[in-house]
Amino acid sequence: MFVKRLIDTTEKGFLIIIALFTVGAMAQEVMLLIELRKVELKDLLLMFIYAEVLGMLGAFYSSHRIPITIPLFIAMTALSRLIILQGKDGDPSILLYESGAILMIAISCWVINRLRERE
């Protein structure tokens, strides 16, 4: 009993730290964008990743579980951001691998949602 309570408390503590660090990173990004007076697509995707992390934490606190699709959405957004950061100077084969990974994750999300509908 004590060990389970200790693990649960530790888990909740780390989730609070992750939430605080995510909000801090988002605030730093906003301050940088204000200082630079320029917002690009890569910046918006990064902010979306931060928002999804907070959404995932909120989903965990409300239901005590994390829907598998939320980390998959974060992964797709992170891969999209990576593609944008590489620009047109990158190796085209890497672009195909990354976009193929996004397609595979998107298909996985679709399959998961179809399976949930059948329940």
Rank of each mutant, 00 (worst) to 15 (best):
P92D: 06
S99Q: 12
F14Q: 08
I66G: 09
I107V: 12
L20D: 15
K4F: 05
L32Q: 06
P71F: 00
D8R: 07
K12L: 11
G87K: 09
I18S: 01
I83D: 05
T10A: 06
S63V: 00
F21Y: 10
E29L: 10
L32D: 03
R5A: 11
R65N: 00
R5K: 14
L82D: 11
Y61T: 10
A101G: 14
K42R: 08
S63R: 10
L72E: 13
A27P: 06
K42C: 02
F2A: 13
F21G: 13
L15Y: 12
L46H: 02
A106L: 13
G87R: 06
F60E: 04
Y50P: 04
I84D: 00
I74T: 03
E35G: 01
I16S: 06
T10N: 00
L57F: 02
I17E: 01
L96A: 14
R114L: 08
G24K: 10
Y61W: 01
L20A: 13
I84Y: 05
M26V: 11
I18L: 04
S63F: 05
V53K: 05
L15P: 11
I34Y: 10
L33T: 10
L6R: 09
L46R: 00
L15C: 07
D89Q: 15
I16H: 03
P71R: 05
S93H: 10
I49W: 08
Q28N: 12
A27F: 08
L85D: 04
K42I: 15
E117Q: 08
A25P: 00
D43P: 04
D8H: 04
K4V: 03
M76F: 09
F14C: 04
P67Q: 07
R37C: 03
L32I: 02
A101Y: 05
I107Y: 01
A25L: 01
M56D: 08
P92W: 11
F73P: 08
Y50H: 06
L54P: 09
I16Q: 06
I70S: 09
L44M: 00
I83T: 04
K42D: 05
L36M: 00
F73K: 13
T10L: 02
V53M: 02
P67K: 11
I112Q: 12
M47A: 01
R114K: 14
L45W: 06
L72A: 11
Q86V: 13
I70P: 14
G13N: 08
G58S: 02
I84M: 10
V111L: 06
Y97M: 14
L32H: 07
K4Y: 05
T69W: 02
L41P: 10
L41Q: 05
R116Q: 15
G100A: 09
G58N: 12
D43L: 06
G90I: 15
A25F: 09
I16G: 10
P92K: 15
M47H: 05
S62Q: 08
F73C: 01
F60V: 07
S108Q: 13
S108E: 13
G100D: 13
L54N: 02
S108Y: 15
A106K: 15
M47P: 04
F48Y: 01
E98K: 10
R114S: 04
M76D: 03
L15Q: 12
I74V: 14
S93P: 03
R118M: 15
Y50S: 08
K12N: 13
A106C: 11
A75Q: 09
R5Q: 04
A25K: 02
P92G: 12
I107A: 07
M104N: 13
